[in-house]
Amino acid sequence: MSLTTERPTTRLQPAKLPTGPGTIGWLGPVLALLLVGVGVLVGQDAWVRLRGGSTTWLGSATSALDGLAPSAAVAAVGVVVALVGLWSVVAALRPRTRDALPLGGTSGAHLRTADVARLASAAADQVDGVLRTRSSAGRRSVTVDVTTTAARGGAADGVADRVRTSVEHALRALESPPRIKVRTTASKGDDQ
C-alpha cells in the first residue's frame, strides 16, 4: 500500500491525549498478585490438612498472634498499617497523570514533558557561550539550567536572553508553549 502526494481533502481527527496510569497502574497488578498469594496460603492449609497434617502456614500465623498483649510495638505496627491504608486510598482516588503537550495542528500529535526538555536542551546547546545544559519540563513551564563561559553580569544575562529566544523558537509549534525559565551558572574558572 502506498500513500500518494495528492492534496487530501479529509483531515485526521485527533484522539484523546494519552494519560499515564499513575500509582494505580502498578498497584492493581500487585493487588491481583496478593489475591493469588492469599489463594496459595489457604490452598496450602487445605492441602496439608486433607493429607492428615496439622502444621500449616495459616495455622502458624494464627498461633503466633495468640496471646498478643497491647504494647508500643503493636501501636507502631498499627500506625504503619494505617499509613499504608491511607496511601492506598490516595492512590485509588488520584486522577491519571498527564504529561503530554499537544502540537499545534489537527492530527493529535503530542510530546511528553521529557521530550520537551530534550528539545529545550538541544536548542540551548546551540547558543554561543553555552557549555552545558540541563532542562526539566512540566506541562506549563520549562526550566533550562545552562553553564556559560561568560562570567556573571551583563555577558551572562545576554547568554540567558539568547537561550530563552532559542528555546522559544524550538517550542513555538506546541499548541500552548510552556513558560521558559533560564538559570545561568558561570563555568568554574570564569567565575570571578
Binding site: 498497584l27 491504608g85 492506598s88
Partner: peptide
C-alpha cells in the same frame, strides 16, 4: 483496581487505627 485499592485502604486505615489505639 481503584475500587479494591480504596476498600482495602479504608479497611487498613480502620484496622491500623484500632490496633494503634489498642496498643
Amino acid at each position: 483496581d481503584r475500587l479494591v485499592a480504596l476498600l482495602l485502604g479504608l479497611v487498613l486505615v480502620a484496622a491500623g487505627a484500632a490496633a494503634a489505639a489498642w496498643g
